[in-house]
Design a protein around this nucleic acid. Sequence first.
DNA 1: CATGAATGAGTATTCATTCAT
DNA 2: AATGAATGAATACTCATTCAT
Lengths: 203, 203, 203, 203
Amino acid sequence: MPRKPQQARARATVDAIIEAGFIAVSKRGTHATTTRQIAEIAGISVGSLYEYFADKEAIFEAMNQRFVAEVVALVQPLVPTLVRMPIDQAVYELLVAFGAFLRKNDERYLKFARDSMQAELQRHLEPVTRLLMDLVTHYIMHNPASVRMRNVPTMAYIFINGGIFAVVKHLSDPNPPMSYDELSRGLADMVGHYSKQELASKA
Amino acid sequence: MPRKPQQARARATVDAIIEAGFIAVSKRGTHATTTRQIAEIAGISVGSLYEYFADKEAIFEAMNQRFVAEVVALVQPLVPTLVRMPIDQAVYELLVAFGAFLRKNDERYLKFARDSMQAELQRHLEPVTRLLMDLVTHYIMHNPASVRMRNVPTMAYIFINGGIFAVVKHLSDPNPPMSYDELSRGLADMVGHYSKQELASKA
Amino acid sequence: MPRKPQQARARATVDAIIEAGFIAVSKRGTHATTTRQIAEIAGISVGSLYEYFADKEAIFEAMNQRFVAEVVALVQPLVPTLVRMPIDQAVYELLVAFGAFLRKNDERYLKFARDSMQAELQRHLEPVTRLLMDLVTHYIMHNPASVRMRNVPTMAYIFINGGIFAVVKHLSDPNPPMSYDELSRGLADMVGHYSKQELASKA
Amino acid sequence: MPRKPQQARARATVDAIIEAGFIAVSKRGTHATTTRQIAEIAGISVGSLYEYFADKEAIFEAMNQRFVAEVVALVQPLVPTLVRMPIDQAVYELLVAFGAFLRKNDERYLKFARDSMQAELQRHLEPVTRLLMDLVTHYIMHNPASVRMRNVPTMAYIFINGGIFAVVKHLSDPNPPMSYDELSRGLADMVGHYSKQELASKA
DNA sequence: CATGAATGAGTATTCATTCAT
DNA sequence: AATGAATGAATACTCATTCAT
């Protein structure tokens, strides 16, 4: 029966365990992380670990809560500033801050997020990504006007990876906030608007 | 050392194993799928499974190969048509076909793809997504002009989810095809161009 | 990663496992000994066994270390005495001590050593041994003088068994300390000198 | 139910299986040899293998019979010659022939014999052998006269390895042809006579 | 409170043997 | 006779969790 930590020392132990959890997951991934490893890194015994967490899953949950809390702590104070910027600059500023956050502490949070997203998918979906990249190439060859767009590779990267993920996430959502058709049109508009704007600014 | 199937019966067994693999992963996810489960679903013995696959991983690889092969078979023939369409329509058509593909066979392929992407991340990153959604709301409240844009929720969904994924994927890539700054600017431009175009078309 | 025993209880468990290893190997041989059997004999669970030994092989290695340590403990203190004896008496004394050692504890160490030497070979090479025994008989019938030697059966036993083993061991050694021809001449001299000396002492 | 081969073709298959058995055991040892490997090397199916041999053990038995038969075929014709030689020359000639036999066919028979004798034992008993070698060194240092003997290393090799093997074999024999004490005296005499003779011939 | 020893159900994998074709 | 597909009991090893000290 785990108990609520009531003393400073106890809270320090809980922190050490969560810290150790991030370190262990950074090294080996969630799946390969064992309670023994976490306890060792935290410098305590397995027995003690179970004094503070009901089971292994509870540790991962605590890690996630901390991760989210830190993201919130990062973004929250930026909100007043961001909302006063032009939208593209706001997005850019947010991404700069987020990238720095993910990379700090020896990429601890990036590794955690990547583990959540199963880095494997890169290998698995690589051929699909390549296929879509080829499709982009074909498209450009058939539409000479589009050649004038800047950053085609970067935008293709964003559209393809972001698009695959948005589609899978949407389809997996039991109560999606919009229909699949709306999502499809949204993605189509995003690409269409971008290219029109891009070509217009070039003219 | 798995043997090559030489009789029709053997080939049917190999197919049954791959089929069973998709079903098992659909139900419990890759990680929780055991060789015994696959064998049971396929209606064969564990031994038979190892007649044709070196280990569990080999089954997952065969599943992935089949998945990719089917995506290719889906997209390849569409290419000539797509490249002759306006870009937004091309994206839309592709997404319609892809959505139908993922949902067929009791969503077998969708479940497989979702597993590859670790469905967990939905639960894990849900609060982060919500935070960013709130940011969008705040933004709109501070930028009355933007209210005229259609589909704000859908576009926010796409930008946020696709953006998170593109960022994590990029940061995890040891040899990314562009810098993080280029990616950030790309995402910013995508949003900026979209909103400009949207507002322009409304005017 | 097996842990180092830190409490008295743990050290007792390690001892029990090694003890159980000798008992199991005594009964069924190394090859047929399973981790479950060892755990059962030791009165512990399989899990505990793996707390202290990386794998099955590590248990056999620990057994071997104990075996060797005990042989050393047996012979070492005898050295000062043995080197002051005539050579034949020294050999005899050593063999008496060694025989007693192998037979103690219900022949635990003998069984372990025999297993290392694969008791099978007795059955396998029995006909070869018999053939060579016949050869000795033929030899004696053709060389009447040799009849005067004492202990012909014992010496034949030693020469034949020891000889077969020395030959196989030598041929299997990638860096033998002498040539096969030297070994052959050595065996020949051993027999020749013995018989000459024996006949001389009879005369 | 295996049947007795009645046709030439069947006998050829049996031969191929035995041959394949030797090849497989040469490569991986008895323990790691599987029926599938034997069948593959023999160029037949597992099913066919069981047409000719009741089980795996039966194949090893057939291999052993062939091994013994070949040793007999080697030694038998030499007997008339050997019995007319001085004993040391007879031993030498026999060993030359035996060594050549073990090494022919890519050491097939040597590997089989070594496998029977578990090559591991070299590693296992290495420390014991070294201890006894040290004992010999000590002995010689305390008995300056013995320095005059030729071939001390070779003879020590023979005595130690042959002696260990003879002792273990004797102790393991439920009906040994002599007592352990007789064996010990025999080994002692062997060494004693050899050294006396050696020193005498030097004088 | 803390420790670390002990547990045992669960997992991947192997292989001698059988049997339908 | 021959094939090779199928079997499943058996084995080594892991690790979250419990509990005596």
